[in-house]
Amino acid sequence: MAQIAHCLTVAPVAHRMREFRSAWPATDGLAVFNAVYLAVTEEIGRRIEAGDFPDRGAAATLDVRFAERYLTVVDAVADGGRAPACWRPLFQYRRHPGVRPLQFALAGINAHIGHDLALAVVDTCRVLGCEPADLEDEFDRVGDVLTDLEEHIRDELLPGPDLLEVADPLLHLLGCWSLERARDGAWLAARSLWQLARLPELAEEFTERLDRSVGLVGRMLLTPLAPRG
C-alpha cells in the first residue's frame, strides 16, 4: 500500500487551510474549527514524516482523503451550494453571537469525525485496494492525535473565570458529546459501508441517515448560550 501512495503528503491540504485562516476573521465559527483542524493536520504530517505510522503511504492517503472532504464542503458552500446535513449547523451558526468558540470547534470535529472520517476510510480502501482492517493502525493513530489535542482545545477555548455563568451550561452541553464515542462510531460506520458496497441503495440510505444524525448532534452542540461580551 505504501508504494501506491508514497508521493502523497498533507502539505497541499494544510496550505488550503492556511488560506482559509487568512481569509476568515478569527471570530468566525468556521475559522475556529479550521484553526483546530490545521493544527491536527500539521501534527499528523510531522508524525508521518517522523515514521510514527506503520505505513506512511496509507496514513498520508487517509489523512488527505479525510481533509479533502472538509475542503470540498467549504468550496461547495462558497460556490452557492448547500452543505451536507452534518456540516449545515456550523455554516448556519458560524456568526451567531451566542455560540462560544469551543462549541464551534467541537461541532466541526463532530461533523468531520462522525461523518467524513468513515467515508474517508472507504475512499482510502478503494484507492489502495485494501480492506478497512488494513487501515486500523492508521485510523487509531490519527484518532490518537485528535485525543492528544482535545484537552488542549478545551483548555484554550473554554471561557475563563469571568464567564462562569456561561461555562456552567457549556460544560453541561459538552458533557453530552465524546470524541472517543465519535471515533468508535466512525470506525463502525466505515466497516458497515464497506460491507454494503454490493448494495448501493442501502449504502446510500445508510450514508444519508449518518449525515442527518451527525447533523442533529452538531445542532445540539451549537445551542446558543449567551451573547459574547
Rank of each mutant, 00 (worst) to 15 (best):
A50C: 08
V36I: 10
L135M: 07
D79G: 04
V73L: 01
L38Y: 09
P159Y: 15
L146R: 07
W24K: 03
T72N: 15
A14G: 01
V122D: 08
S22E: 11
D79H: 09
E42T: 01
M17A: 05
L38W: 11
A2I: 07
I4N: 04
R47V: 03
F91N: 00
T9S: 15
P54E: 10
L30G: 08
V73D: 09
G175T: 02
R100E: 15
H6K: 09
V73G: 05
A186P: 00
E19R: 08
A189D: 11
S22W: 06
D148H: 05
L135H: 01
L135K: 01
R126C: 07
A133P: 00
T72P: 04
V217Q: 12
H115W: 15
V74C: 12
R126V: 12
G218H: 06
L199M: 13
V145P: 02
L174A: 09
A197W: 07
G175N: 12
D211G: 02
R69Q: 12
G215W: 02
G51I: 06
D134E: 10
D116W: 13
Y70H: 07
G185K: 08
D134I: 01
A190M: 11
G229I: 06
L146I: 08
V121D: 03
A58Q: 10
D63P: 01
Y37N: 03
L174G: 04
R212Y: 03
L157E: 12
E49F: 14
L119G: 01
A186W: 13
L71G: 07
L216W: 13
P25F: 15
A5I: 10
L135C: 07
M220V: 05
L106M: 13
F206D: 04
A76Y: 09
A31Q: 08
G129W: 11
P169L: 14
E138N: 03
L171F: 14
S178G: 10
A59Q: 02
N110V: 06
G80P: 02
D134F: 09
P54C: 13
F33Q: 05
V13R: 05
P159F: 15
A31S: 09
H15C: 04
L202R: 08
L38K: 01
V99K: 04
L90V: 00
Y93E: 06
F53R: 03
E138A: 04
W87R: 04
V77S: 03
P12I: 11
L71D: 13
Y70T: 02
L106V: 05
C176A: 08
I109E: 13
F91A: 00
G215T: 04
E42F: 11
A76H: 10
L222A: 10
A59T: 01
R94E: 13
A26C: 06
H15P: 00
F20E: 09
E156H: 15
E165P: 01
R88Q: 00
E131H: 07
R212A: 15
H172P: 00
A39H: 05
A189M: 06
E43S: 06
A78E: 10
D75M: 09
T41H: 08
Q103R: 06
R154H: 06
I44S: 02
V121A: 10
Q103C: 09
P84N: 03
V10C: 14
V77C: 07
P224I: 05
Y37P: 00
M17T: 01
L225S: 05
R95K: 10
L202W: 12
R88D: 01
H152R: 14
F66D: 04
P169G: 09
D168Q: 08
V214E: 11
R209S: 13
A120Y: 09
D155R: 14
T27D: 15
E180P: 00
